[in-house]
Design a protein around this nucleic acid. Structure first.
Lengths: 216, 216
DNA sequence: TAAAATTACGGAGTCCGTAAGAATG
DNA sequence: CATTCTTACGGACTCCGTAATTTTA
């Protein structure tokens, strides 16, 4: 699936007709028709009701708008943010399950920041399975979960008898980074992520708020 | 940009080499090389350090993992969720700025639910500009913002003297819907969105929590 | 020198634009 | 009957696989 299809889709939603979208996208209207037909084929549903008046979203189409926006914005954010500017390379990414955030996660983050003073910490809240997957993928450097997974290069520690488990990716060189922009953001109470960085810091907000309250 | 490129990228991250990824994806290794070169061209940076040992992520590559996951998961969620099953078509989508959530937004949602009893309400928190854009796109049916925009088909009301503005898309038929799945979810305190629906209900969680606390 | 990635090149498939056709208010 | 979308078709481009080449631990 080409992301141009979602761009085309959203342009039709905005402009209200295939022809208007075609003009804005600098392609012919037949190309727009083909793209939407392809998209509808992929999703196995009809996205627009076509008639003389133009193109109007179906219920499925309305539902897809959110997905399309998310995909397109994420891709454009990636293009905007990469390559990483100098000095933005150094962040340690930690994750944790919701119920472990308070107070365990907060204390953990505090201690990380206290121990390795010059480096920023990104936190990510999610369910255990997602966290382990991201740990495996290298998105996270460490995570706080209930049920650990074991695989090569993974170091697991039991923290409490209550089966709280700290899982940490074993890194040859420690993955400690600096990211002043994020560090500053962490210390403010903006409960919503910067749109440009949405995919990265999406669910940092609530925790940042608590962190702020806890640490002034 | 084809989403297959992100799928290929993530597969290399998982398996550690182009060859292993090629096997898993049932394509040749040259195809994988070409795809990554194309992706690197789009992002204007190098994603992997290639050597005899395989492929290792660069700092830029590590950063892109999060974007790639977001894009891929959103697309797969769209494929999974569309077409909408019967009975899932009817939701009213409202948005609001963070600082207006409590108590204005909560009261609003309560009154909507009281007034049109049989229908579910989806809430979405974001900044004013984003909300207005989504209103324009049809993702939202109404939004609570500070600074309104005016355009055809838009109905704006001032709620308080303090410049709180309710902007509402004028709908021929009112967009009132039923969605029991979401309604049930709204009444539970799961602070995290269902992964399958992540792009849609991503920042509903915190509000749902407050809603739950306010309404038992 | 052996494992891994890149380059070269030809064929299959895809995408787009032009032109003609169908629907509808 | 005019505006909008769809279908048909040919050319350009893209993507993939085979085979040969380069790189490096």
């Amino acid at each position: 699936m080409d992301i141009d299809l979602t761009r085309t889709f959203l342009e039709i939603v905005r402009s209200g007709s295939f022809i208007a979208a075609a003009e804005r996208l600098h392609v012919t209207q037949t190309a727009v028709t083909a793209r939407i037909q392809k998209l509808e084929g992929h999703l196995n549903c009809t996205l627009f009701v076509r008639n003389r008046a133009g193109a109007k979203l179906t219920a499925d189409g309305e539902a897809f708008v959110a997905y399309a926006n998310q995909i397109l914005q994420t891709w454009e954010a990636a293009q905007r943010d990469l390559p990483l500017p100098d000095g933005y390379h150094n962040v340690i990414h930690v994750g944790g399950e919701v119920s472990l955030c308070n107070p365990l996660m907060l204390r953990w983050v505090s201690r990380i920041r206290a121990r390795i003073d010059h480096y920023a910490v990104h936190t990510h809240i999610g369910d255990g399975q997602e966290l382990l997957r991201q740990l495996e993928l290298g998105v996270l450097d460490a995570a706080l979960v209930y049920q650990p997974n074991y695989w090569p290069g993974m170091q697991v520690e039991q923290l409490l008898e209550e089966k709280l488990i700290l899982v940490r990716a074993k890194n040859p060189e420690p993955y400690v980074y600096v990211d002043w922009g994020e560090a500053v953001r962490l210390q403010h109470d903006s409960a919503l992520p910067d749109r440009a960085k949405a995919p990265v810091t999406l669910n940092l907000g609530p925790l940042a708020l608590q962190y702020h309250l806890a640490h002034g």
